[in-house]
Simulated scan of single mutants.
Amino acid sequence: MPHQQPPWVYDRRRALGRRIRDLRIREGHTQEAFAEMTDIDRRTFQRIEAGTSDPRYGDLLRIADALGVPLSELVR
């Protein structure tokens, strides 16, 4: 049986997704184009932005690099 996360984990995951979405939109990228440029599956990227998926560290590094922000700013 999977371990259920505390509510604050879900809140922070959603906040991370919102930050990624806001930065992506600010840069003028569609979800599809951004997923392609970061080599992340489009559906996976949609789940990351929606806060329903725990992104892998490598995905976060590629997202931060593509957005031109330090990883620390992305996950603050």
Results as ranks from 00 to 15, higher is better:
Val69Gln: 05
Met1Phe: 09
Gly58Leu: 08
Arg42Thr: 07
Gln46Ile: 11
Arg26Cys: 04
Gly68Ile: 07
Asp41Arg: 10
Ser72Trp: 04
Arg13Pro: 01
Trp8Tyr: 13
Tyr10Phe: 12
Met1Leu: 11
Thr30Lys: 11
Thr30Glu: 04
Ser53His: 15
Arg43Lys: 15
Phe34His: 12
Gln46Ser: 09
Arg56Asn: 01
Asp54Phe: 13
Thr30Pro: 05
Phe45Ala: 09
Glu49Thr: 02
Arg47Thr: 03
Arg76Met: 05
Arg62Asp: 07
Val69Cys: 07
Glu73Tyr: 11
Asp59Arg: 12
Asp11Gln: 15
Glu36Gln: 14
Val69His: 05
Ile40Tyr: 02
Arg56Thr: 06
Ile40Thr: 03
Leu16Ser: 01
Arg19Lys: 12
Val9Thr: 13
Pro55Ala: 09
Pro6Gln: 11
Arg18Glu: 08
Gly68Ser: 04
Ala33Phe: 07
Arg21Thr: 03
Thr52Arg: 14
Phe45Met: 15
Gln4Ile: 15
Leu67Phe: 05
Pro55Arg: 13
Asp39Ile: 10
Ala50His: 03
Ile25Pro: 00
Gln4Arg: 15
Ala64Asp: 02
Ala33Lys: 14
Glu32Val: 15
His3Tyr: 12
Thr44Asn: 11
Ile20Val: 05
Asp22Cys: 02
Ile40Ala: 03
Arg24Ala: 05
Gln4Gly: 08
Leu74Asn: 10
Ile20Pro: 00
Pro6Phe: 07
Arg24Pro: 04
Ala35Ile: 04
Gln31Cys: 04
Asp59Gln: 15
Glu36Thr: 07
Thr38Val: 11
Arg19Ile: 03
Ile20Phe: 00
Ser53Val: 11
Asp54Cys: 08
Thr38Trp: 09
Arg56Ala: 06
Phe45Cys: 07
Thr38Gly: 02
Arg14Pro: 00
Pro7Leu: 11
Ile48Ala: 01
Leu61Ile: 12
Tyr10Asn: 12
Gly68Glu: 03
Ile48Ser: 01
Arg14Glu: 03
Arg43Met: 09
Pro7Met: 07
Pro7Ala: 15
Arg76Tyr: 01
Asp41Gly: 07
Leu61Phe: 05
Glu27Met: 14
Tyr57Asp: 08
Val69Phe: 09
Arg47Trp: 04
